[in-house]
Computed example of a mutant assay.
Amino acid sequence: MRSRFRVIGIDCPLCALSLRRSLAALPELRNVIMPFGGTTADIETDLSSEELLRLLSGVSERLHGQVTFLPLDIQMKDR
């Protein structure tokens, strides 16, 4: 499943890079694509939508506490 999220709370490119690297290091996520500005994230995983949102919530709390992931499109078709 590929999901797209709007990322709220990232205000610098280095924070976006740190977040992308942290997400990419998670074994539950197969592929993470975040543009340089960090305003969106495309995530590929086998987790259900609910499991993915729980995982992202935990990442948010560990890294910044103020980062929010808003689902834009769950189960996107592969490009």
Rank of each mutant, 00 (worst) to 15 (best):
61 E>P: 02
34 M>T: 06
57 S>L: 10
3 S>Q: 06
75 Q>M: 12
29 L>E: 09
23 L>C: 02
37 G>T: 14
64 H>F: 14
15 C>D: 04
4 R>W: 00
8 I>D: 06
22 S>M: 00
24 A>S: 13
3 S>P: 03
55 L>K: 11
79 R>V: 15
66 Q>V: 14
39 T>P: 01
6 R>A: 09
48 S>M: 10
25 A>W: 04
50 E>R: 13
24 A>D: 06
74 I>S: 03
32 V>E: 07
79 R>H: 14
24 A>N: 03
30 R>I: 05
65 G>W: 03
70 L>K: 12
32 V>A: 08
9 G>S: 02
66 Q>H: 15
43 I>G: 10
9 G>I: 03
55 L>P: 08
71 P>R: 03
40 T>F: 06
71 P>M: 03
67 V>H: 05
26 L>F: 03
38 G>L: 09
28 E>C: 01
3 S>E: 08
33 I>D: 08
14 L>I: 00
48 S>W: 12
78 D>F: 09
33 I>K: 05
45 T>F: 07
66 Q>F: 15
25 A>Y: 03
35 P>L: 11
57 S>E: 12
7 V>A: 02
19 L>R: 00
9 G>V: 02
44 E>Q: 14
55 L>G: 07
58 G>F: 10
39 T>N: 10
34 M>G: 03
58 G>Q: 13
41 A>T: 12
10 I>F: 01
53 L>W: 05
1 M>H: 13
12 C>P: 00
47 L>A: 07
51 E>Q: 15
13 P>D: 12
53 L>A: 09
62 R>M: 10
19 L>F: 05
78 D>R: 13
19 L>E: 00
19 L>H: 01
75 Q>R: 14
14 L>C: 00
14 L>K: 02
27 P>R: 04
79 R>L: 15
5 F>H: 01
34 M>Y: 04
66 Q>Y: 15
49 S>D: 15
62 R>H: 14
4 R>Y: 05
56 L>K: 06
51 E>T: 07
51 E>N: 09
70 L>M: 09
55 L>F: 10
47 L>F: 08
31 N>I: 04
18 S>I: 01
3 S>V: 07
51 E>S: 13
50 E>D: 13
24 A>W: 01
33 I>R: 08
25 A>C: 04
36 F>K: 09
63 L>W: 11
23 L>P: 01
38 G>F: 10
63 L>C: 12
76 M>W: 07
35 P>E: 13
11 D>N: 09
57 S>H: 13
